[in-house]
Design a protein around this nucleic acid. Sequence first.
DNA 1: GAAAATATTCTGCAAAGCAGACTTAGCGTC
DNA 2: GACGCTAAGTCTGCTTTGCAGAATATTTTC
Lengths: 109, 109
Amino acid sequence: MIGEFEYVLLTSAAALGDNAYGAAIREQIEDTTGRRCSIGALYTTIDRLESKGLLSTWMGEATAERGGRAKRMVKLTPQGIREAKDFYNAILRVSRNASWAVERRKGIL
Amino acid sequence: MIGEFEYVLLTSAAALGDNAYGAAIREQIEDTTGRRCSIGALYTTIDRLESKGLLSTWMGEATAERGGRAKRMVKLTPQGIREAKDFYNAILRVSRNASWAVERRKGIL
DNA sequence: GAAAATATTCTGCAAAGCAGACTTAGCGTC
DNA sequence: GACGCTAAGTCTGCTTTGCAGAATATTTTC
C-alpha cells in the first residue's frame, strides 16, 4: 500500500494533467492540503514513485519566461492510477462506520 | 499528520468501542482491510500512538475462556479522535476532483 | 504438571517522509 | 560576454512509520 504523502502527490499530479511537473505539483500540494511541502519531500517521493512504476517522468523544454531550468514532467501510469484508487477505497472502507465519517456524510446529505 | 496504518488502527479501535484490545484490533484490521496485520506492526503502532497521546491503554483482567493472558485495553483520546478526523478530511479534500473519487460518487448517487 | 489457548513483549530492519543547501540553466542588461 | 535574477531540479542525511516474527507470559483443561 502506498503512503499518505505518496497518495497526495499522485492525486495532485493527476489534477494538473499535462501541466504536472515538480514545482507545480509542490504548489498544488500546498494549496490543497494547507501544509508546507519541502523540496526534499517532493522529489524523493517522485523518485520513489517512479522507481515503483506508479508514475513516469521526462524532461520538458525550459519554457522561456524570465529564466528557468527545464521542467521534469510527470504523468501517472495505469498502475499509479490503480494504486491511488485502491488507497482511496481502502480509506473509505475502513472509515465506513467511523463517527467522523458518519458526521460528515450527514453534513453533506 | 498520522500515517495510513496509524489511521487504520485508530479507526479499528474506535469501531470496537469497549472491546478494543490488541488481538481484537488486529482481527478487525484484517477483516476491514483484507490485508494481513503482523503482531509487530500492531503493537509497535499502539505503543507509538500511546506515546503521542492519541490513545491510552491499560491492562484489563484476563477473561476466563480457555486460557489467555490479560488484555491490553485501548481507547482513543480526544486528541486521537481529532487526528483521525483530520486525516480523513485531508484525504477527502485532496481527492475532491480525482477521477477515482468522482467515479465512486456517481456510483453511490 | 504438561499441553493448549490467548495475548503481549521485544528487537531489528525496511520503507516512507522531511529538510534544506547546493547546483543548473536561461534571460536580460549594460 | 560577464553578472545578477529567476525558475527549477539534484543530492544527501536524518527521522518517523511500517513490518515481521521469535520469545515470553498467563490461564485452563485433562
